[in-house]
Write a protein that binds this DNA or RNA. Structure first.
Length: 793
DNA sequence: TCCTAGCGCTTTTTT
DNA sequence: AGCGCTAGGA
């Protein structure tokens, strides 16, 4: 066996397999490795430059994952590193899973031999467990999920004598989360920031929370990295141990790293920076949760002598799509700059379709999907990408009506469902009776008559005796402190937990789970509730028990769910996907529908308010991500009226539409005429009026007409959904004297004026309400329209 | 201790 | 509009 073959697979010596390791290795002897042959020159360079820091700027669809996985395979195949020498970090479990699979394909072996390939958090946990005692934890510390975290913070807030109404635990949670993302321990938080919460007690609350975590032998997600930093800083010997171990480092999605992750990487890469970071500054869309685009922009400065490799050949999208995306993103400042190109055909232009309202928009999308389906396209090749989840409802309604199979990606995840968390809390209590937060969660679920009063007794006793709640309860029920009824209930419960706990070693863990859920009365609770929803919950519980089979024991299962908050749903039915733009990153589809390109929604007003120009640029990157998900068809939509929080609002097309290159987009008409009628010409007109004037400028114009932005919002809202009923829209009556008075003669029109409307033709104004006009059209009947689509004749 | 009516909030989401 | 939480009453 040659030297490099040994390094490929140091243990077994299997017979050479077709396409396997040995065969590939032989290919390398004769010329070059087979795995390198499918790479373009830039990709190859990104794989073969193994010394020193490397930044790979990988534009959308340029083969980023291929480079990462091939690079790892290359390091192993050439004998530069053994699998255990390579640290490879990703953000999501999905990405980690995918990489393992693909490396396995490349090397012809299952890549379980990559012990240090995983998410930041998974690897952080692994390291932390080995040295837990050095940061005040035990090796079996529990990882709190968001829910536990918030309940704990609530306790901390109350313990500090603060009103948890006025200072909500959620707010503190996001504040502390933000600090942890930035690598700040309580002593590092600036006084000003610390004082911003809880009457100046922010920092103290943070410190108290950290203390509580230590008491509970627990860590939250942020700690998994933050405690690593502490460990590395306070124990240079341990740091150097890992520096030596990780001879090569790879980082996926580098543009999404936050400060803590950045510091972690820097510490590990300190002496021997064989670090390769792959990312795309144009796809940084997680600034709001602590990601620092700066990390990638600063890479060359941080790692002097870094090789910067740009992957600019796009293998995903056709010409028009790519050109559209490129032109849009060029409006951002401060980019590292890439020019994507494709060797693919120009393909179809990106289409822009204006709809009267969001219902019509959903209808149009539904029809286009059906039309494509009739032409033989798979539903699984299509996706609808929305800015906010609230947009999904109307789409789902429409798809249900059409009988169009769809799936919502993202949404509430499996492990976040109440019944799953309850079941997990039971199992955590069984496995670890000291898990106070889990105990609290289920002590009275199902209702057992153990309310606040009883629980408070247990709490007080536990605090005084410094005991876990379960143990405190066990001791308390032997006294007369508790009233007879709750006393016997609680006694039975603690006995039950003791019994279940004793079964851990003898009973199969999934059977044990079933037993626990049965005997505790938890399954009964849902069975008694005869609703379809409860049936679904029971289904989920079954699924949970089933999924446990994949793990060797209860402890392994619980560790898995703490870190992996998703399940791989392998439903392969042919369905349209609906998801947010954020959830779509990293995915691709033949056809992508992008509804809701309107000011306020997209770019999202809140992002603009909170982050100004940076917010706008992140929104634009989101738009870029959306368009670049499409392989062959990207279809943009906007509606002139949208229902938000139950109110109809007049909207104007997104400024992003104005930023698209005219040569690569086309404005479409709706394929079918609806109740209010439409023709190609009219739709063009509608759109043009929104196209030639920059969106933001018109927004200002409209704002200027109204006394204030608040009354603008009001005056442009239709009365209710009842008066606005989609295609079968009845003549609209405006129910508000109040509304009419409040908005005044803002439109400049008068009752009786003859007007022309781009969509409905000529008509007479019969009623005015701010910028909304009720008009009897000569041909189209009575409609309510907005003044900016109307001109006097 | 439990049930329910009313109130307030509402971007994006991973681990 | 819809959901989750909370306070207040039974």
């Amino acid at each position: 066996m040659s030297e490099f073959e040994k390094s490929l697979n140091p243990i077994a010596t299997p017979a050479p397999r077709a396409g396997g390791l040995a065969e590939r290795a032989r290919a390398q002897v004769t010329g070059q490795a087979a795995y390198l042959q499918n790479l373009n020159p830039e990709q190859r360079r990104a794989v073969e430059v193994t010394d020193g820091p490397v930044l790979v700027l990988a534009g959308a669809g340029t083969g980023k994952t291929r480079v990462l996985t091939t690079r790892i395979a290359h390091l192993i195949a050439t004998g530069l590193a053994r699998p255990g020498d390579i640290l490879a970090v990703t953000f999501t479990n999905k990405a980690a899973r995918e990489m393992k699979e693909r490396i396995g394909h490349l090397l012809g072996t299952v890549a379980e031999g990559m012990p240090w390939l995983g998410t930041f958090h998974a690897i952080g946990t692994k390291i932390l467990r080995r040295h837990a005692e050095l940061v005040g934890l035990r090796a079996d510390f529990t990882i709190l999920d968001t829910d536990d975290q918030i309940r704990l913070m609530k306790q901390v807030i109350q313990a500090a004598g603060l009103d948890d109404k006025r200072w909500p635990a959620r707010a503190l949670a996001s504040l502390i989360d933000g600090w942890k993302n930035r690598g700040l321990t309580p002593d590092k938080v600036s006084a000003g920031e610390g004082a911003s919460f809880g009457n100046g007690k922010g920092t103290a609350l943070y410190a108290a929370y950290q203390q509580r975590l230590k008491d509970l032998n627990a860590a939250d997600f942020g700690d998994l990295l933050l405690e690593n930093l502490r460990l590395f800083r306070t124990h240079p010997d341990i740091l150097s141990q890992y520096q030596t171990r990780f001879r090569y480092m790879l980082v996926d999605e580098y543009q999404d790293t936050n400060v803590a992750q950045y510091l972690w990487l820097r510490l590990l890469a300190q002496n021997k920076p064989n670090i390769a970071c792959v990312g795309d500054d144009d796809q940084s869309i997680y600034g709001w949760r602590g990601a620092e685009v700066d990390n990638i922009l600063r890479f060359e400065h941080d790692f002097p002598g870094a090789a910067v490799i740009r992957l600019e050949c796009n293998y995903r999208s056709t010409g028009h799509i790519l050109a559209t995306a490129a032109h849009l993103i060029a409006h951002n400042d401060g980019r590292l700059g890439k020019t994507l190109f494709t060797e693919d055909e120009a393909g179809e232009k990106v289409t822009i379709t204006g709809a009267w309202d969001s219902e019509e928009e959903a209808r149009l999308i539904g029809e286009e999907i059906e039309a494509l389906q009739h032409k033989g396209h798979q539903l699984a090749d299509m996706a609808v990408l929305v800015r906010i989840s609230a947009q999904m409802r109307e789409l789902e309604d429409r798809f249900v009506t059409l009988g169009l199979p769809y799936r919502v990606i993202g949404g509430p995840r499996f492990y976040e469902r109440a019944e799953i968390r309850d079941a997990l809390a039971y199992l955590r209590c069984v496995a670890n009776p000291d898990h106070d937060l889990a105990f609290e969660r289920i002590v009275n679920v199902p209702k057992r008559g153990l309310g606040d009063a009883t629980l408070e007794l247990v709490h007080v006793y536990a605090r005084n005796k410094r005991l876990p709640l379960m143990e405190a309860a066990r001791q308390l029920v032997e006294t007369d402190e508790i009233k007879p009824k709750p006393r016997s209930t609680l006694r039975e419960l603690t006995k039950a937990f003791a019994r279940w706990n004793s079964l851990i070693d003898t009973m199969k863990h999934n059977e044990l789970a079933e037993t626990v859920l049965e005997e505790s009365g938890y399954t009964d609770m849902w069975q008694k509730e005869r609703t379809p929803e409860a049936a679904g919950r029971l289904e989920n519980l079954k699924e949970l028990v089933r999924s446990m089979e994949e793990f060797p024991d209860l402890a392994a299962f619980l560790e898995h769910v703490s870190l992996v908050m998703d399940t791989n749903d392998n439903s392969d039915a042919d369905r349209v996907s609906i998801m947010t733009l954020h959830a779509a990153k990293g995915l691709e589809f033949e056809t992508v529908f992008l509804p809701g390109w309107e000011e306020s929604l997209f770019p999202n007003q809140r992002a603009l308010d909170e982050s100004g120009k940076a917010g706008l640029e992140e929104e634009r990157r989101l738009a870029y991500v959306g368009i670049t998900r499409a392989r062959r068809r990207a279809k943009l939509f906007f509606a002139t009226n949208r229902r938000l929080h139950g109110m109809w609002n007049a909207t104007i097309p997104s400024r992003f539409i104005d930023e698209l290159p005219e040569a690569h987009v086309e404005i479409t008409e709706a394929p079918i005429n609806y109740a209010h009628g439409s023709s190609r010409f009219e739709r063009m007109g509608t759109f043009r009026s929104g196209y030639t004037t920059p969106g933001w400028q018109r927004a200002q114009d409209q704002q200027a007409q109204a006394p204030s932005s608040a009354s603008f919002g009001k005056s442009s809202s239709f009365a209710s959904s009842g008066t606005h009923a989609g295609s079968a829209r009845p003549p609209l009556q405006i129910d508000g004297e109040v509304l009419a008075r409040s908005s005044g003669p803002a439109s400049g029109f008068q009752q009786g004026d003859r007007i022309f409307h781009v969509k409905f033709g000529n008509g007479s104004i019969i009623h005015l309400d701010g910028n909304k006009l009720t008009i009897d059209f000569d041909k189209a009947g009575r409609k309510m329209v907005l003044d900016n689509f109307v001109s006097r004749i």
